[in-house]
Simulated scan of single mutants.
Amino acid sequence: MLPSGGRDITLALASGLGVDDDVAERLKRGDLVQVDGEGATPLPEAAEIRGLALRRAESFVDEVRSSLEFYRAQMPDAQIEGVLVVGGGSRLDGLLELLQERLPVPVDRGRLFEREVRDRAVCGGIDRGRGRAVGRGRARDPQPEARVSLVNLLPPELRERQAVRRTTSLVVAGGLAALALIGILYLFQVLRLSQVRSDLEAQQSTNARLVSQIASLREFAALQAELAAKEALIDVIFVNEVSWSSALLDVSRVIPDASYLTNLTGQIEATVAGEVVAEPTGGTPETLVGNMTFAGIANQTETIATWITRLEEVQGWVNAWVNSAEEDAPGSRIYTFSNGLDLTQEAVTERGQGVVAP
């Protein structure tokens, strides 16, 4: 089906000439038209009407030619032997010549209401050299409609093919869009995987470096363990340590002038749990850590008593006692004595008490 036809030519004449559609239709067919009434616009010459109509008919002829060319391209095995022009528009003067000029097949006027059909015109056998039907016999055809070839310019098969092509195009476009989306997602995942692998390699490199550092520090760990063992041994060795130099200094401070020592012995003993002495001045029992014993010469027994009393005044020295005191000669008042005392935690150095110096 073509979107234009004789109606378009009628409208073009009505618009170009300024007449009604009925008048334009009659002019298109070549009928005589009488213009009545005063002030009516006179009709132009027939040549002008013919030119105006043919200018509009040119587009129609071009559409017919395009349709035939399209049909031949779609149906290469089909043959079009001629074109029959029918209808009121076919009476337009010059239309058949224009069709014959621009179409690649013979053109003739159809006569649908005549029982008599020209044999070769109906069968498509048109004398192409002369552009008109040949064979004018009046043989009556019992079934003329059966011999007329009808050409459908847009067969249903073509419409079906076009629909299939449109559907196929949509499916292909959807598939391509899906493939593009999958490709984008794949690219994104590849980039993400590459980043993860890069992070993993960096972490593995860091781990290898840390393992190497740990291996290089193992000797220091052994030294640290040895140091800790020695520190523990030192703690054991110096437990309940007493500064004997300080003890000698304290002895020199408390010994009376009328006496001197001939022997001094100091001993550190293991602490015995629960071993306490009489309550000292503070009234708190204290654990004994060792003792000291003395031997010396003193003038008079009062000197020995002063010596014993002064020993109790030294911090950490308790339980002073006298073992013996013998006069060297009767009436000489010179005595040889021996005595001792116990040492408590207060006599122990800070290191011996486990106190770490700041």
Rank of each mutant, 00 (worst) to 15 (best):
E97V: 00
N319K: 09
E25P: 00
V355G: 08
V105R: 12
I297Q: 04
A163Q: 11
P285F: 14
D22K: 15
G135D: 15
A139L: 12
V276L: 06
V164W: 06
L181D: 04
R136W: 15
L288Y: 15
P42M: 12
T309W: 00
V172P: 04
E25A: 12
R29K: 10
V164K: 09
G88Y: 00
D119A: 07
Q300H: 08
L52K: 07
L103S: 12
T167V: 01
L185D: 03
G354E: 05
A295Y: 06
A146S: 05
G16Y: 08
W321N: 12
R136M: 13
V276E: 04
L150Y: 10
I255A: 05
Q195G: 11
Y260M: 08
L52W: 11
A247K: 02
D119L: 05
R136K: 14
M75Y: 11
R138D: 13
S252N: 07
G175S: 09
L84R: 05
G290E: 04
I255T: 05
N152A: 09
E313W: 07
Q224M: 10
N240Q: 10
T10M: 04
V355M: 12
A320V: 03
T10R: 06
R140M: 14
V122A: 11
G30K: 07
A247V: 11
G316D: 01
A347R: 01
L17K: 11
D199V: 12
R140F: 15
L200S: 11
E350Y: 13
I308V: 01
E346P: 04
R7C: 03
R111S: 02
I214K: 11
T287C: 05
R111K: 05
V86I: 05
A133E: 02
G30Q: 06
F70M: 12
I9Q: 08
R55V: 06
T271M: 08
S212K: 10
S212M: 04
L27Q: 06
